[in-house]
Simulated assay, not measured.
Amino acid sequence: MNIPNILTSVRIFMIPILVAVYYLPWEGRYYTCAFIFAVAAITDWLDGFLARKLNQMTPFGAFFDPVADKLMVSVALVMLVASYSNPLLTLASAVIVGREIVISALREWMAEMGKRASVAVSYIGKLKTTMQMLAIFILLGTQPGTLWAHVGETVLVVAALLTLWSMYIYLKAAWPELMSKQSGEN
């Protein structure tokens, strides 16, 4: 274990804490959940930065880091969908989670084909992630129905649109391999 992998592991262990705090009957839960999520988002950036800076990239970290990120985001979105009862927020959340499943499968398949670089993270993907993290931070930190909740919902919809755009970019890059007769199963 190295520092980046420890940070990734901490992010996984923060998930049940986030869920427990979110459902506590306590007014401070919103700010606390936003803080927990912010720390998780910072560790997501920090573990990658440190892995590259300290030359501590490992197969475990390469696998576990995106899993930790997707778990934290998915759990937060599920909690928010349950609390907000807003069809637009639900649709945006479904788009975000659905895209993660599609792109994860696509990256795995492209890696098997030896073409993982074709679906490397793009600028739009990074922007999508930033907007998504910001939206979740805002939504976790406010009560449903407030002005800030509406701001968070709007940011989440923008993140969902960027999600669709980034998925299009990835699928377009992989399309020749997906349509190739030599790629495997049809």
Rank of each mutant, 00 (worst) to 15 (best):
L171H: 07
M133A: 03
G98P: 02
S93P: 05
E177F: 11
R107G: 03
S85A: 14
A160D: 00
S122M: 03
L147M: 13
V151G: 04
L77G: 02
E153R: 14
T130C: 11
R107Q: 08
V95P: 00
A111I: 11
T90G: 08
L139Q: 02
A135T: 04
G141K: 05
A105M: 14
G125V: 03
A159R: 08
Q182T: 13
M113I: 02
H150P: 00
I101K: 09
M113Q: 15
S122E: 01
M79Q: 13
G125I: 02
E112L: 12
F137Q: 07
E177N: 13
L161I: 15
S85R: 13
L91G: 09
A160L: 03
T146P: 08
R107T: 07
Y123E: 01
L156C: 06
A120N: 03
Y168N: 12
V97W: 09
S180N: 13
E153I: 14
V158M: 10
E177T: 13
T129F: 04
G152C: 05
I103A: 03
K128W: 00
A149Q: 04
A92P: 08
L161H: 06
L106W: 07
A111D: 12
M133E: 00
G152R: 00
W165E: 12
V158T: 09
K172G: 04
E108I: 05
L127H: 05
R116L: 13
T130K: 07
V151Q: 02
T90R: 05
L178I: 13
P87S: 06
T130A: 15
K128S: 01
E153V: 12
T146F: 09
I136N: 04
I169D: 14
F137C: 10
K172Y: 14
K172E: 15
S118C: 06
A82N: 14
Y170G: 07
M179D: 12
E153F: 06
E112A: 12
L127Q: 02
Y170V: 09
V97Q: 04
